[in-house]
């Protein structure tokens, strides 16, 4: 039996190319507590936001305390980072396309000129802000500060309260919400035609391999 068992084990190894299907004793299952503590991203689904609430009014004080030193009280400072707000019009809010991006703005556009998705602002503020003290804001504070930044940019009014039900209202007023495209050849995964992104890897700069009398 012993020998037969060895033979079967050997056959199994050969059958799967000497790579085992599982690796007992390597790694461990994460506990629910660990998952909750580590899983801090705010995903792209507006219907699956964390339960949180923050008003423009609350955000004003938090912003002054945690953000204004770098970004300026008006959100337009360029001293440390690119500006958070500026360069958008009420027309942009209506159309979802920022006219000021063509021709390209000198020095790059403000955050609100670019931002296509509200969850990006919430997620990044939660994970990486304030610069040098990331992770010190609770989720309600993240929502309040985000609401205030939207207010500074003229996207929402002073009475706005951002929570998981009003987030869609703010999303639908983002000035550049319609300003993005995935129609390009630089996504290495499945194309849009089969549920992925992009055109399947077709470049937009086709060149002949000219050897003589070429156009420089």
């Amino acid at each position: 039996m012993y020998r037969l068992g060895n033979a079967i084990a050997l056959l199994l190894l050969v059958a799967v190319g000497n790579v085992l299907a599982s690796y007992p004793g390597v790694g461990r299952v994460a506990t629910p507590g660990e998952l909750a503590a580590w899983d801090t991203d705010i995903g792209p689904n507006l219907n699956a936001l964390p339960v949180a609430r923050g008003s423009v009014i609350q955000g004003r004080h938090l912003y002054e305390a945690h953000c204004a030193a770098c970004h300026g009280s008006d959100g337009r400072s360029t001293k440390v980072f690119l500006p958070l707000v500026g360069g958008i019009t009420t027309e942009d809010v209506a159309t979802g396309r920022v006219a000021g991006l063509s021709p390209p703005p000198a020095g790059g556009g403000s955050t609100l000129m670019l931002l296509p998705t509200l969850t990006t602002l919430l997620d990044y503020t939660q994970r990486a802000m304030p610069f040098g003290a990331a992770g010190t804001l609770n989720v309600d504070e993240v929502f309040a500060i985000s609401a205030y930044v939207l207010y500074l940019g003229g996207v929402v009014d002073e009475g706005f309260v951002l929570d998981n039900t009003t987030a869609v209202l703010a999303q639908n007023r983002l000035p550049n919400r319609n300003g993005f495209t995935n129609d390009h050849g630089m996504w290495p995964g499945a194309p849009a035609a089969t549920g992925g992104l992009g055109n399947g890897g077709v470049p937009d700069t086709n060149m002949p391999r000219c050897m003589n009398h070429c156009e420089p």
């Binding site: 991006l101 063509s102 296509p116 990044y124 495209t181 390009h184 996504w187």
Partner: peptide, 19 residues
């Protein structure tokens, strides 16, 4: 969504340009 996006002449940005 805010960086590593490719601004085109018409003012749109290409997103998820990776290769």
């Amino acid at each position: 969504a805010l960086r590593y996006i490719d601004l085109m002449p018409d003012g749109t940005h290409r997103q998820y340009t990776s290769v």
